[in-house]
Amino acid sequence: MREIQANQITETLARLAVEANHYLGDDVVAALKHAREIEESPAGRDVLDQLLKNVEIAKQGTFPLCQDTGVAVVVVELGQEVHVVGGDLFQAIHEGVKQGYTGGFLRKSMVGQPFSERKNTKDNTPAMIHTDIVPGDKIKLTIMPKGGGCENMSALAMLTPSAGRKGVIDFIVNTIDKAGSNPCPPTIVGVGIGGSSDQAMWLAKKSLLRPLGEWNPDSETAALEKELLEKINNLGIGPMGLGGRTTALAVHVLTTPCHIASMPVGVNVQCHSARYKEAVL
């Protein structure tokens, strides 16, 4: 067993939280630049120019990309040969988020009891942790600060198998149409198809971690992604909903087997400030 200190996990996450909120990934910047090149709408071009200028200001490290520095979604790929010592893994993650958000002047956007008291936890904890046990002796930590505006546009449909491929497309395109300008387009549309209700929603979110510019390795799923992207961009919603060619930068689909009676479809929308950073310990 390889030993990894809990405080190393804490320090890494604190650093990643600050980095993710100031440095937009090269893949996302390239996608925004491409969108700017092909945009026909003057208002849309103006929005994209503002976003590209915003990226330049944020990367100086003083102002976060967005005031909504998000809920801290943390994805852990834990090698089964790893033994975490000197503390509890999940506590180490929450502590890292707390240190990153507090020390890094990031907004604290979590409330405790959600349906009446709604009192801010004041350190952006708890993190929302997803854990996969994988072969090997390393830990991969990914932080995805997820804003509330785009997360609120999520949707789930428990379609019947008779709805077929067309039913899947109609549900997804309709979800993005209804969301309009709310989730800060151009967005990345994450889709999970199959599994159970919870698995479909998780796959939808997990798909957002795929770098922009890559399609699903399965050719039939990639064809579905391309068709969805074209249909979504034909809606005309455009950058920040003011009309234009680019409503989504990409559509990412992940699939998993499901029950003979079911066809769950989950949609998780990511705004153009698609922030994530990862580290391997």
């Binding site: 929005v47 976003l51 800060c184 909903g241």
Partner: peptide, 28 residues
């Protein structure tokens, strides 16, 4: 930023007000 409901748009007409959008995510 984002869509307003019909009662808000009606109130904008009735009370002579205006709804502006700023660019979401251009916060810095």
């Amino acid at each position: 930023k984002g869509l307003r409901a019909a009662p808000v748009k009606d109130a904008i007409k009735k009370h002579k007000a205006v709804y502006f959008a700023a660019t979401g995510g251009a916060a810095a």
